[in-house]
Computed example of a mutant assay.
Amino acid sequence: MLRRMGTDAHGEDELRLFHTGEHACGYWPGRVARDLVLDPRDPRLPRWYPLALAWGFRRSGDIVYRPHCAACRACVPVRIPVARFVPNRTQRRCLQRNAAVESRVCPAVRSDEHLALYRRYLQSRHPGGGMENHGAVEFDQFLIGSWSEVRFLELRERGRLLAVAVTDLADGALSAVYTFYEPAEAHRSPGTLAILHQLQWARREQRAHLYLGYWIGAHPKMDYKRRFRPLEAFDGRGWRDFDPDRGAFA
């Protein structure tokens, strides 16, 4: 156990934080990583989760964590202020190119269709990474968990499922947990399209922020987040406007 978080909104005892041991970095080969993890056994975790998002944490399954590496600060928590977001030219073209795609928010209940798409995505995008053999149990554990308030944002074209954006609901915000899509449609930028539809969803419900997890500069799978402007980043104490091109706060 490393430390305790402050008193919750109900005035109850603090929530414990743990420091994990070193493990292989999931982003950079040859590096080691450590995380701060909220006590996964605490029954109040669903209540703490919105506050944890505001402190730069993220959910994976039932685990709420934040990278806390000794010699690296590459993982920067970022979010989009929904009311201030304006799509750029490339993003407008993405919407136009996918004008026939419809989005639907639905309960986070795994179907055979979801699982088949997820497996095709992993086998194409993450071969040899240990996830390509995920089945139904791993799908539920990794994406849905047991306590989070989560929804699936489906993107379909004439009924055909193109992408699923797993999205958590939080007080005044949405959190983009994971998106998987049809590998053969990668040229249509389905990941970008999913974020744009999540932003439309957040705007409809007057949610202030869409959390995107961690931006990692120059990382080929994480750097796309810099294209969404304005972007806010967590500096360890609060959220500030962030310029990812310079890797610095505005």
Results as ranks from 00 to 15, higher is better:
Ile63Gln: 04
Ile63Ala: 07
His68Glu: 02
Cys69Glu: 09
Ala70Asp: 02
Ala70Pro: 00
Ala71Pro: 04
Ala71Thr: 05
Cys72Thr: 03
Cys75Gln: 04
Val76Thr: 15
Pro77Ala: 01
Pro77Ser: 01
Pro77Val: 01
Ile80Gly: 01
Ile80His: 13
Pro81Asn: 15
Ala83Arg: 12
Ala83Phe: 06
Ala83Leu: 08
Val86Ala: 14
Pro87Phe: 03
Thr90Ala: 14
Gln91Asp: 06
Arg92Glu: 12
Arg93Lys: 11
Ser103Tyr: 04
Arg104Cys: 12
Arg104Leu: 15
Arg104Pro: 01
Val105Ser: 08
Cys106Phe: 06
Cys106Thr: 14
Val109Thr: 13
Ser111Leu: 14
Ser111Gln: 05
His114Gln: 05
His114Tyr: 09
Leu115His: 02
Ala116Ser: 13
Leu117Tyr: 13
Leu117Val: 09
Leu117Cys: 04
Tyr118Glu: 08
Arg119Ser: 03
Tyr121Pro: 13
Tyr121Gly: 13
Leu122Cys: 10
Leu122Ser: 05
Gln123His: 13
Ser124Trp: 02
Ser124Pro: 03
Arg125Asp: 02
Gly129His: 13
Gly129Phe: 02
Gly130Val: 11
Asn133Asp: 15
His134Met: 07
Ala136Ile: 09
Glu138Trp: 06
Phe139Lys: 00
Phe139Asn: 00
Gly145Pro: 03
Ser146Thr: 14
Ser148Gly: 09
Glu149Phe: 05
Arg151Glu: 15
Glu154Asn: 03
Glu154Arg: 02
Leu155Pro: 01
Leu155Gly: 05
Ala165Pro: 01
Val166Glu: 10
Ala173Asn: 09
Ala176Phe: 08
Ala176Gln: 15
Ala176Gly: 12
Tyr178Gln: 14
Tyr178Lys: 15
Phe180Gln: 10
Pro183Gln: 14
Ala184Thr: 08
Ala186Ser: 05
Ala186Val: 03
Ala186Glu: 06
Arg188Ser: 05
Arg188Gly: 05
Ser189Thr: 05
Thr192Met: 11
